[in-house]
């Protein structure tokens, strides 16, 4: 899932300073699962904003609304009937959702309440960890199912580096060395021969380096004139 963090209240307060009527828009997908911008967090932020405004003698009207998703226009368009009643939208979706909401309502101010951080997994309730960087060319079959792009601080393809010590990364003693994990796992799988293979220089054009990416499946597209 996409994992994010709620921005500090101070930052959000600064953004909403000029507005008295805001639409606080949550998202029911990943950002709900990582407990940053779902219905519950929308409630908490709305309450914090109201308390803060009231404490400082100001007024604020907040409509709390959580969409099934903010990355599909069919859902975003559900706010059409009432969006104009509000001066600004504060979106608690990931960066994709925030942008798509802004895109659907060009005349509306859309403000981010979330810092989107990574693609990851839930390690335990309340703990999330990064696993993928969406580089566009997966090599997990060579690395025992552990990604050196996302989990090695240097994204090394033929590691480990000299900074690996007792299975930990020099960047942070709490971070496991991805290449230590890879070697251990390959050993367990009896696939150490994969470790011997030199992984060639990666073509990063499939990743962010190639610019923003678009995926098209022509068979699914609906012709414009139908």
């Amino acid at each position: 899932m996409i994992v994010g963090n709620r921005k500090p209240l101070e930052e959000i307060l600064e953004m909403v300073k000029p507005y008295k009527k805001i639409l606080l828009l949550g998202c029911n997908e990943c950002i709900t699962v990582c407990a940053a911008g779902g219905e519950r967090e929308v409630g908490v932020l709305a309450s914090e904003l109201k308390l803060s405004r009231a404490k400082n003698g100001g007024e604020i009207e907040i409509k709390e609304h959580t969409l099934e998703r903010q990355c599909d226009f069919e859902y975003i368009d559900q706010i059409k009937p009432f969006v104009d009643d509000y001066e600004a939208i504060v979106s608690m979706a990931c960066g994709a959702g925030i942008q798509y909401t802004a895109e659907r309502f060009p005349g509306k101010v859309v403000l981010p309440a979330i810092n989107t951080t990574f693609l990851g997994v839930t390690l335990e309730q309340g703990v999330w960890s990064e696993r993928c960087q969406g580089c566009g060319e997966c090599i997990l079959h060579l690395t025992g199912g552990i990604c050196p792009v996302a989990r090695c601080a240097k994204s090394l393809f033929n590691g480990p580096c000299g900074g690996s010590s007792n299975g930990k990364c020099e960047v942070n003693p709490d971070t496991p060395c991805a290449w230590q994990l890879i070697v251990d796992r390959l050993k367990e799988l009896g696939q150490l021969e994969n470790y011997e293979k030199i992984i060639e220089v990666k073509n990063w054009s499939t990743s962010r380096d190639g610019g923003p990416r678009t995926r098209v499946r022509e068979d699914l597209r609906i012709p414009k004139d139908s």
Partner: peptide
């Protein structure tokens, strides 16, 4: 409570 009596604006 510092928000008391100032919360009339709440909707």
């Amino acid at each position: 409570n510092p928000v008391k009596d100032k919360n009339k604006a709440f909707k």
